[in-house]
Simulated scan of single mutants.
Amino acid sequence: MKNVGEAPQEELAAGLRSDRPTRNRVARSILDHGPSTVTELAKRLGLTPAAVRRHLDGLLTDDVVEAREQRVYGARTRGRPAKVFALTDCGRDAFDQSYDKLAADALTWIAERHGGGEAVAAFARARIAALADAYRAAVDAAPPEQRTEALAKALSADGYAATARSAPEPRTGEQLCQHHCPVAHVAEQFPQLCEAETELFAELLGTHVQRLATIAHGDGVCTTFIPKISTTTGMSEPHTDTSDTSDTSDTSESHTHASARTAGRNPA
């Protein structure tokens, strides 16, 4: 005889199986949009906050997501920052990163046999150049004010789940956000992959860009700042950053073609 309130093991297992598709939708939404609050997830998925919390509890237990305090840009408001949920390394592993070890071993072999970091950098540039034609066609076909968005769509087609948005004040420009990186684990060991990608973005968009954060170094999203281009001169508008420098890298490097030193690391 079972105690009142106890569910048979079969019923419990069936409940978990029925939850799985929605739980996967929650994880996928975090992958596509980056670290998210319960309210944001509920709105995107058409669920109640209580239902989202239930699925998040399961994902937390399975080490698929982790809870963090939301990063605040610019002036900080009163009160504690909202809690956001981000994918863990284990969670990202579920999204097509099964060849990481093979790729890392190959790059290690290149570095040891053919010139160290410079050889890896040459490989990274050659790799990104092979992918560049589709990105270049998309960017060139878009009007200047829509080029960042066009690049985001092209990157999404390659699995980067990228979006474009206005940069938070006091920055003037846009942010290109990649919510997924198929090579994130390899880039932890070889930041040349991030650096080559950042250089390509600068070339495609015709302006210097600044990498603010990367998934490879623990951030929830790869974030690249693209300054606003003056419509009269075609040059990047000057920018003075008075925000909290604990959240972004030193803007004294922002006038280089692409900030290679910040391309593959977390600047915070």
Rank of each mutant, 00 (worst) to 15 (best):
P170D: 05
A137I: 10
A121R: 06
D219I: 07
D63Q: 15
L59G: 11
A132E: 12
G264K: 03
Y135Q: 10
L200K: 00
R92A: 09
I226C: 04
A94D: 09
V139Q: 05
R113C: 03
L193W: 02
L56R: 03
Q178D: 06
G58I: 09
A121H: 08
V52E: 07
T22K: 06
V183G: 10
A150S: 10
L176C: 00
S18F: 14
A142I: 01
G218T: 03
D105V: 00
K153P: 09
A86G: 08
T88N: 09
Q189M: 04
A196W: 00
A27E: 10
V120T: 03
S246F: 14
T251V: 04
A124S: 05
I229F: 06
G74T: 08
F85H: 15
R165C: 02
A51V: 10
V72W: 05
H255A: 10
V221R: 11
T48S: 15
R125Q: 07
E197C: 03
A152R: 00
V65M: 02
T148A: 10
L45N: 14
A104W: 10
T240K: 08
D158K: 09
P21H: 01
P49R: 12
R76T: 11
Y99G: 08
E145N: 11
R76P: 09
A263I: 00
G159R: 07
F190R: 09
A82M: 05
T163W: 09
E6W: 11
T251K: 02
L45I: 06
C177H: 05
L107R: 03
R211W: 14
H33T: 01
D100C: 03
L176I: 01
H257K: 13
